[in-house]
């Protein structure tokens, strides 16, 4: 709908900017706090922008090391789970599209049904299972959970993308004498690369942002993820903590924002096309 014909351009810009001010203000406020000195934060009449910029809080976060240690844990778990989920999902999506059988409907049906169940119901027996396997409070266990956690959506996305590739392309390659491996690596991979990129970003961000599983599973401070570490700070947030916590939050948010901006083109494709077809 073109609102433009009824509202002036200026009004549209104005309304969008009202939204943006609301949506960005909390972040601006915290970025600003992270750059203010502690006395300025509690001066009684703080301003939106810092009167004097100081990097003390960032320095104290970096020197404290714990934030960087946990950030490193998050990066490792994120990258490993992303690679694993792609190794599993890409061939599976291909198999599901090209060889049609009852298993496919089973898997796709499961992906949808599993969305209804609250995490707590999965978490309880999973915790018991992982404890039995000795994988609670272990980055291996957490990585495994994140693979299973992002698998349904990645599989759903990849399934859609593989389906959009005409089978005639592959048949033509076979007629030209290509074997199965060549069909996959020379014909399919180049076409699927953007979809794989989008899935990778999605899987990484899911792991980076996830809190509940990590919170329940990871008990040693040295093995915590960044989200767990930051949540722990809020429990004991005193006056002096506002600045460092603001700085740590800014550091933790930057990777997510960068990755989101990269994958925004693909964010909607899966859900919207799914909704329109279903």
């Amino acid at each position: 709908m073109n609102v433009k014909k009824y509202l002036s351009k200026a009004t549209i810009h104005f309304l969008i900017i009202v939204y943006i001010v609301f949506l960005l203000f909390p972040l601006v406020w915290v970025v600003s706090s992270s750059l203010k000195s502690t006395p300025e934060i509690y001066s009684g009449s703080p301003t939106i922008l810092p009167q004097q910029i100081t990097f003390d809080h960032y320095i104290s976060v970096i020197e404290g090391q714990q934030v960087f240690l946990t950030m490193w844990n998050s990066v490792i778990v994120g990258i490993v789970s992303t690679i694993l989920v792609l190794l599993i999902a890409v061939p599976s999506a291909y198999a599901m599209v090209r060889y049609k059988s009852i298993i496919n409907s089973g898997i796709l049906g499961w992906i949808l049904v599993s969305q209804i169940f609250p995490v707590i119901l999965v978490m309880i027996p999973l915790y018991v299972l992982l404890r039995y396997m000795g994988l609670t409070d272990s980055l291996v266990g957490l990585t495994l959970i994140y693979v299973v956690w992002s698998l349904p959506f990645v599989l759903w996305m990849m399934h859609g993308y593989v389906k959009s590739i005409p089978i005639e392309l592959e048949e033509a390659a076979v007629i030209d004498g290509a074997n199965r491996a060549q069909v996959i690596f020379k014909v399919l991979m180049p076409l699927l690369l953007p979809a794989i990129g989008a899935s990778a970003l999605f899987a990484f961000i899911s792991a980076w942002n996830e809190f509940f599983f990590a919170f329940v599973l990871m008990k040693s401070p040295a093995l915590a993820t960044l989200q767990v570490e930051l949540a722990r700070y809020t429990g004991m947030e005193g006056q002096a903590r506002t600045g460092p916590l603001a700085a740590a939050s800014v550091i933790a948010t930057i990777p997510s924002i960068i990755l989101f901006v990269f994958m925004r083109k693909w964010l909607t494709t899966g859900l919207v096309s799914g909704a329109l077809k279903g």
Binding site: L27, W29, Q227, A231, T234, S249, I257, V261
Partner: peptide
């Protein structure tokens, strides 16, 4: 792009941002 930012912010950080917004003496 600007509108994406709150969505990109992890839920835990959203909580921290708003705790600092609601801080009784120094919150916005």
């Amino acid at each position: 792009v600007l509108i994406l930012i709150p969505w990109a912010t992890p839920p835990i950080i959203r909580g921290i941002l708003w705790r600092q917004m609601y801080e009784p003496n120094a919150g916005a």
